[in-house]
Structures are given as C-alpha cells and as structure tokens.
Design a protein around this nucleic acid. Structure first.
Length: 271
DNA sequence: CGCAGCGCCTGAAGGC
DNA sequence: TGCCTTCAGGCGCTGC
C-alpha cells in the first residue's frame, strides 16, 4: 500500500528518466478512473512532483498528469519493443518519443489518474483539500496541534484523512502513534503530545524513505524492487508480538474500519 | 455544507 | 482437495 515513502521512492526513480520526455501516444483503460490518461498525448513532462501520496507530472502546456497508486498501482518504464501491452492489469500507458513506454498497472483498480489544468485539482477532492507536506517547515507544532485537536474524530482517522498532514496511511499512522505513545482512538491531545506525534511522523516517514518503502504485499518501486522498511516496523502487522518498548503483547482492533495495532501499555487511552 | 458510511476491486489465505 | 468466505484498505461518492 503505497504511502508517502513509497511514492517518494518512485518519484525519485522516475523523475530523471521522465524529464523532457514527450508523450507521443497515450492510452487509458475504459474505467473512468483511468481513461483520461490518454489526454496527456502531445505534452512534454517538465517536472515530476509529489504531493502526499499523489504523483504529479507537470506538463509543458500548463497541465498536470496526476497518478494515485491506490493499493496495488505500479508505475514502470520499459522499452517499447519488448512491451507487452496485453496484460490483464494494465490500466494506462504513455509512449515516449524515445522508444520507451511509461506504464501503469493496477490489479485492484483502487488507483486513479487525472489530467488537469495546472494546480486545478478539484476533480481529486482529497488532493484538492490536502494538508501540508510533513517536511514543510511551515508545518509547526502549533499548526499541527490546532488541526488535530478540534476535529472530534479519532486521532488516527484524522491523520488518514490527509487534512492535518499529507501522505500518512495505515502503516505509518500506526508506527507514528506507537513511537509517540499515543492511543489511536484518542480524540484530542495536549500540545506537547502533538509535537511528539509530528516528530514521530517525520521520523517514521524519513526512515521509510531511507529504506525505499515498505513491502508487505504488493508494493514494488519503479524498478520492480521491494522496499526494505518492513524489517524496521515497530508495530504495524505485529499484533500479538511483544512491544519493543515494554514487552507486553501488541493489541489489534478495527478502528473506523481500519485494522489498527498498538501497545495497550505504552499507548494508554487518555481521551 | 461537513462528514459518516458505503462501495469499489481482486488475489491470497483460512476454514470446513 | 476444492469451494466458499474473509480480509487487505485509500478514497470518491452519496445522503443525512
């Protein structure tokens, strides 16, 4: 499940290979989630940005080609002559002017593609309303605290909404809450705990990027290589195992329809 | 108008 | 062994 570290890993791999590439032919599957991919034809990629979990290819005609990987989306670049464009899960492809093809495969079709006017992201509501980037200096403790304290929702659910901060998904949310010692179902928190949580989010995301992302089921990078951060998880996916901090078995429950793992001792319910 | 709840989608894994 | 059920879950959409 690609979250910020996985998407950033892919961005870093693809950007140098896509700069100044002209899209000479393009195709999107009939599923409306992907079909607009074809309208990127005729444009040249001038930059590859990331916003939260969204990849945004800037096009030279003041448009954006946006790709969200969903759960099982994979982007890769292949030589046109060896490309098999008949595979079952191919959802879109873009033929470049140098005999290469950028392809998007997505088994479960939770991903999404859009071509928009520059920075006009109204067709992707979550991106349109997305919060600050985790490593943006303007995201202060105070701003983060203010975004979290008033919603009335469970803290984890708030994090996953992408509004207080961009790019956190289920894995890194559980990791950050564990690291900060905060119960995922708390609804509010002190300013100092908000500061600790922000620091924890930055820490787990940075570690995830450093390890090339987390591979538990489907994720591979743009080269088809698995990430390494799954060997560094404190909490996610380890229900029943002893907590690395206190030794008590990690608990698991469904919170707002998300599988959630936490330590009942290190992350006491506060409010 | 904000948000809770639902549906999407398929392969892997578990149960009988 | 094989079929059926459950699970994984981010996000767009609908309706209150």
């Amino acid at each position: 499940m690609p979250e910020l570290p996985e998407v950033e890993t892919i961005r870093r791999q693809l950007e140098p290979r896509l700069l100044n590439a002209a899209i000479v032919l393009a195709w999107g599957s009939p599923n409306p989630k992907f079909t607009t991919a074809s309208s990127a034809m005729g444009s040249t990629i001038t930059r590859l940005d990331r916003r939260g979990k969204y990849l945004i290819a800037r096009l030279d005609d003041d448009r954006d080609l946006i790709v969200h990987l969903g759960m099982t989306g994979k982007l890769s670049i292949i030589a046109a002559e060896t490309a098999d464009l008949t595979t079952a899960h191919l959802r879109a492809w873009w033929r470049l002017d140098d005999e290469r093809i950028l392809r998007f495969d997505d088994i479960r079709q939770f991903g999404r593609i859009a071509v928009t006017a520059r920075d006009d992201h109204r067709s992707m509501p979550t991106l349109h309303a997305i919060g600050p980037e985790p490593f943006d200096e303007e995201l202060t403790d105070l701003r983060f605290w203010n975004a979290l304290r008033s919603s009335g929702r469970h803290l984890k659910t708030d994090l996953l909404s992408q509004r207080p901060i961009a790019g956190v998904g289920n894995i890194y949310a559980d990791e950050a809450l564990w690291l900060a010692g905060i119960h995922p179902a708390d609804r509010t928190l002190t300013r100092s705990r908000a500061a600790a949580l922000l620091e924890a989010i930055r820490s787990v995301l940075a570690a995830g990027i450093e390890h090339g992302g987390t591979t538990l089921r489907d994720y591979v990078d743009a080269e088809g290589v698995s990430g390494g951060h799954q060997h560094h998880l404190w909490c996610y996916g380890r229900a029943g195992e002893p907590c690395e901090r206190c030794g008590s078995p990690l608990r698991r429950a469904v919170i707002d329809a998300r599988g959630t793992t936490w330590c009942g001792v290190c992350q006491p319910r506060r409010r």
